[in-house]
Amino acid sequence: MVTIGCFDQPTGYAVNRPRGADSWLFTWTTGGCGRLVQGAVPVEAAAGDLVVLGPGMPHRYAVGPAARHWAFWWVHCQARASWSTWLRPYARGDRAYAVTPVSGIGGRIDEAFHRMLADARWTGHGAPRPDTGPTTGQVAVAHGTAARELALCSLEEIVLLATATAGARADRRESGIDPRVRQAQELMDADPGAPHTVQSLAAEVALSPSRFAHLFTQHVGQSPMRALQQARLRHAARLLEATELPAERVAALSGFTSPFHFSRAFRQRYGSPPGAYRSGVRQRASGERR
């Protein structure tokens, strides 16, 4: 069973389960502050925090001591096995997990919760339609198999988005590379075929083009445009390995406007032109299967 609700509770609201629960509890705070205690582990939940409590541990939660209210989505369900890997870096002990800070994707996560509420109520007739109006105070229980699986898919999206976003920020802090430079690198890697320029990348990270170019070169050891070309060549190599697209199409999808320039740059990077590279990959794969 999957149960989902959206509450906005005033000071004095509290829940105490001395024996814990037989399901997982997921909470996403949208306003105010909550305080959750799982076993001996306390967690403060502010707006944008995903807090997860595993089953089988005594827990209690309430509006934060200094807060006037606590607005939050909550879900009781059995977690999918794959989620434990995503949540593990955010373990606080006693099967409590606090995924924070999560910022920049709150709108997408809120949409997923609205969709989850609609999916939990789905009867199998027509398409589930998320309610765009106020959801505070609403509770839904997914009884049907399809409704449960759809609801869990939305929750899986929420857990993945939250853990990946918070994890990426932690990685940037620990790498020693300026977070703005890492963000620019991630933009290149995520969509190397886009028409990136020094000016557009600098604008994305709120730096002047000259400052961005200097900072990037200082931290990475090569210019932004050189790094972009390397990202495009890596993308092209993946497309050659995994698809049957012609080399001209691979070049265009990887951000190269000239097939001739693409072929020359690819040969310099990988030691053979695109067609020969693809043939070599296929031959090696065929040999390994034998």
Results as ranks from 00 to 15, higher is better:
203 A>Q: 13
199 Q>A: 15
20 G>P: 06
232 R>S: 07
224 P>F: 03
112 A>P: 11
72 F>D: 05
137 G>S: 05
252 A>L: 13
52 V>W: 02
241 E>C: 09
227 A>W: 03
108 R>F: 07
142 A>F: 06
268 Q>E: 13
96 A>C: 08
107 G>Q: 08
117 L>G: 09
168 A>R: 14
53 L>Q: 13
274 P>S: 01
128 P>D: 06
206 A>R: 10
74 W>T: 07
235 H>G: 09
220 V>T: 07
104 G>Y: 00
170 A>R: 15
246 P>W: 01
166 A>T: 03
194 A>W: 11
161 L>C: 05
250 V>T: 09
127 A>W: 13
31 G>K: 01
265 A>I: 06
7 F>R: 11
230 Q>P: 02
167 G>C: 11
92 R>L: 12
10 P>I: 03
266 F>A: 09
244 E>D: 14
85 T>Q: 10
226 R>D: 14
103 S>Y: 12
17 R>H: 09
57 M>G: 04
275 G>P: 05
259 P>L: 06
82 S>Y: 07
217 T>N: 14
113 F>M: 08
27 T>C: 03
88 R>W: 09
156 E>V: 00
241 E>T: 14
62 A>V: 07
42 P>E: 11
225 M>G: 11
79 A>H: 04
167 G>L: 06
56 G>M: 01
126 G>V: 12
253 L>F: 11
227 A>I: 02
238 R>H: 13
116 M>D: 02
236 A>G: 10
177 I>N: 00
13 Y>S: 08
237 A>V: 13
44 E>P: 00
150 L>I: 00
172 R>M: 11
112 A>K: 01
237 A>G: 06
262 F>R: 05
81 A>G: 06
121 R>M: 15
52 V>G: 00
273 P>M: 09
288 E>N: 04
230 Q>D: 14
86 W>H: 08
260 F>R: 15
238 R>D: 12
84 S>N: 08
158 I>Q: 05
131 D>H: 12
70 W>M: 01
114 H>Y: 07
5 G>I: 02
2 V>A: 01
189 D>G: 05
2 V>L: 07
127 A>Y: 14
115 R>Y: 05
130 P>S: 03
75 V>N: 01
8 D>G: 11
48 G>N: 01
240 L>D: 10
178 D>P: 00
170 A>I: 14
184 A>M: 01
32 G>I: 00
170 A>Q: 15
5 G>Y: 02
34 G>F: 06
235 H>C: 12
272 S>G: 03
268 Q>M: 07
95 R>A: 14
61 Y>D: 12
254 S>Y: 04
177 I>C: 07
53 L>W: 10
286 S>N: 12
159 V>A: 06
74 W>R: 10
218 Q>I: 00
55 P>R: 11
87 L>K: 02
130 P>T: 08
285 A>G: 07
208 S>W: 04
162 A>K: 03
218 Q>M: 09
234 R>E: 10
150 L>D: 09
2 V>H: 01
173 R>W: 10
91 A>G: 13
207 L>W: 10
147 A>Q: 02
